[in-house]
Structures are given as structure tokens and as C-alpha cells.
């Protein structure tokens, strides 16, 4: 290797480590912040402090933490479950039972995929108000349950589902819905796992629609609590960091435990 190429490679490595540091530092900042007072945090103190217990206490006094967590988990889990069920059924149906009409319908769905949520937000709000289901779990979950992206993802992955399995199951006299439940779901479990991770993250992290739908404090999810604490007149960053750690922990855990599946799910639609 020549001297210049050695130097470029060294520079490149330095740049990468700097980028990695910048990427990870805010996570450390969040943890350090949870142990510091609000003044220390906005004053730029990045060493660990001794204010962790007071921050936690204050957070639990101000917010009904178990309730908020129940809301977040319930919405994320129920949303994920129903989305998986409805969207995988449709993805399977579009791929296994091909017909000209259904292919055209599917093309129409892909076209709708690029319509931004902003264009549906106001009618959805009016519809849900008129139906009297604002401020309910149902209202948060319902608009996302049939996800075009997930239908697309399952359709793509169904192409890899071996047709011999279907033929054999039919020979054994299984009905179509039985083939789906007893053969397809178990065979495709890694496809489901990857989709589940992405959906859980999306639902857990959702902000705009819950912000519109949820009106009372006891219905709020952790994301809404963090946001409303942070945009207050004088935000108390000590307790906000505690809330932030709790809001981020589930997704970080999912990421580190299931990193490979996570990336698979993310890339799933592009294959």
C-alpha cells in the first residue's frame, strides 16, 4: 500500500469512528441526564450525577407511570397483532390466488401507498369524532390495522412459500383457511417475526395520530407524555430523561436481542 492510500484509509477510519461516536453519544447523554438536575443538563454537564432517585420520584409523582406504560404496551401489542393478522391474510390471498382483477386492485393499493397521512388525518378525525370513539384504544389502532406496506411485504415473502406444501396439504383434505393457519403461519414464522419487530417499533413510537386522538392524561402513551413534558414552559429535563429512557428501552431491547431479524424486516419490502 502506498503512503497516500494508507493515509486516506486512516482518515476514513477516523471519520467512521467520529460518526459512530456522534451516533451513540446522545444515548449516553440520555442516561447521564437521568442522574442529573435540570439545570445541570441544560448547563452541559455530561458526567453522572446523584439526582437519579429524585428524578424518578418526581416522574412517578407527576405521571401515572404504570397506566401510561399499560397504554403504550397495549396499543403497540394489539396494533401489531391485528395488523399482522389482517395484512398477512391479504398478502397471502393476493399472491396465492392470482387473478387479473385482484392484481389490478393490488396495483391500486401501491398507488395509495404514496399518499401521505396528512391527507387522511382531517377526515379520520371527523369520522372518529362522529363515531364517538375518540380517546379510546380502538381509535389509535384502527387506521393502521390494514397496512399496505405490510400487505406488500407479505405478498413478496409468500413467493418463497413452497407450493408443494400447499398441494400436499390439499391432498390431506385441509381446507384453505386450515392451510393458512396450520401450514403457512408456522413455515413463515421468520417473516412474521421480522414484521412483528417493525410493527411493534412503529406502534410504540407513534406520535401524530395518538396526539390527535387522545385527549385525557390517563389515556396518553409514553411518547405523548415525553413530548408534553418537553414542550412545557420550563421543561424539567431531569425527569424528562427518566421518561425518555423508559420510552426508548423497549425498542433498544428489541433491537439488540433481535438485530438480524430487525434488519430483515426493514429491508423486507425491497427484496
Amino acid at each position: 500500500m502506498s503512503l497516500t492510500s494508507k493515509l486516506t484509509s486512516l482518515l476514513m477510519q477516523a471519520a467512521l469512528w467520529l460518526a459512530a461516536f456522534i451516533s451513540v453519544f446522545p444515548f449516553y447523554w440520555m442516561i447521564a441526564g437521568a442522574t442529573n438536575t435540570a439545570n445541570d443538563i441544560t448547563g452541559g454537564k455530561f458526567t453522572l450525577g446523584s439526582n437519579l432517585i429524585p428524578n424518578i420520584t418526581k416522574f412517578f409523582e407527576l405521571v401515572d407511570v404504570p397506566r401510561i406504560f399499560f397504554n403504550s404496551f397495549f396499543v403497540a401489542i394489539a396494533g401489531t397483532f391485528f395488523t399482522l393478522a389482517i395484512s398477512s391474510l391479504a398478502g397471502y390471498g393476493f399472491e396465492i390466488f392470482r387473478s387479473k382483477t385482484r392484481d389490478r386492485v393490488f396495483g391500486g393499493l401501491l398507488l395509495m401507498l404514496s399518499v401521505p397521512f396528512a391527507a387522511m388525518m382531517i377526515p379520520l378525525f371527523v369520522m372518529f369524532s362522529a363515531a364517538g370513539i375518540m380517546n379510546t384504544y380502538l381509535a389509535i389502532i384502527l387506521p393502521g390495522v390494514a397496512s399496505i406496506f405490510m400487505i406488500f411485504y407479505f405478498r413478496q415473502n409468500t413467493k418463497a412459500f413452497p407450493s408443494e406444501l400447499r398441494d400436499a396439504a390439499r391432498m390431506d383434505g385441509l381446507k384453505e383457511w386450515q392451510i393458512f393457519i396450520k401450514i403457512y403461519i408456522p413455515v413463515m414464522r421468520s417473516t412474521y417475526a421480522a414484521a412483528m419487530i417493525i410493527l411493534f417499533m412503529t406502534n410504540w413510537n407513534a406520535y401524530l395520530w395518538p396526539l390527535i386522538v387522545l385527549q385525557t392524561n390517563e389515556m396518553k402513551t409514553i411518547q405523548l407524555v415525553v413530548a408534553s413534558l418537553a414542550t412545557a414552559y420550563t421543561p424539567d429535563y431531569g425527569l424528562i430523561m427518566v421518561a425518555n429512557v423508559l420510552a426508548t428501552l423497549p425498542t433498544i431491547l428489541v433491537f439488540f436481542l433481535l438485530q438480524r431479524r430487525f434488519v430483515e424486516g426493514m429491508l423486507g419490502g425491497v427484496k
Partner: peptide
Amino acid sequence: VTSLVAYSVLFKSM
């Protein structure tokens, strides 16, 4: 992996 709200708060404070 962070939610948009969570990282926004971190940036606001940093």
C-alpha cells in the same frame, strides 16, 4: 431505534 419524540428531546437539551 429511538422514537422521533425521544431523540427530539435529546437534541433539544443538548
